[in-house]
């Protein structure tokens, strides 16, 4: 149990560092070349418009991944009780009482 917890923690740290490196690379690339980036990203038109949008998606992936594992490595994670409860509710949903009157055929 202890070994598997340690493996899990090491795995999270490795992923955090991996995503962190990707994020650092992205930020360095943009801010070290601010002038060129702003020139092309603010040109307007359809091609140039995709540049900031794609960059934002890339950051969502890399920095989103980094921050996800960061909080886990810090020991801050979701309530296991509530998440498990919700998953059980989704697997076995309680039937809602009928709100609409059901049509009946009178023979």
């Amino acid at each position: 149990m202890g070994t598997s917890n340690e493996k899990l923690k090491k795995g999270r740290i490795a992923k955090m560092l991996g995503y962190g490196a990707l994020t650092a690379g992205l930020y360095t690339a943009v801010f070290a070349n601010q002038g060129t980036v702003m020139l092309y990203f603010t040109k307007g038109g359809l091609f140039a418009a995709t540049l900031p949008v794609l960059t934002a998606f890339l950051i969502a992936f890399s920095h989103g991944g980094f921050t996800n594992y960061f909080w886990q490595v810090m020991g801050i994670d979701a309530s296991k009780k509530k998440v498990q409860q919700r998953r059980q509710e989704q697997e076995h949903p309680v039937e809602r009482e009928q709100i609409r009157p059901q049509p009946r055929l009178r023979a």
Binding site: V37, A48, P52
Partner: peptide
């Protein structure tokens, strides 16, 4: 907005 070149990607980041 990006079509008009109004997004400052540095601020966004």
């Amino acid at each position: 907005y990006a079509l008009h070149g109004l997004v400052d990607i540095r601020l966004v980041m």
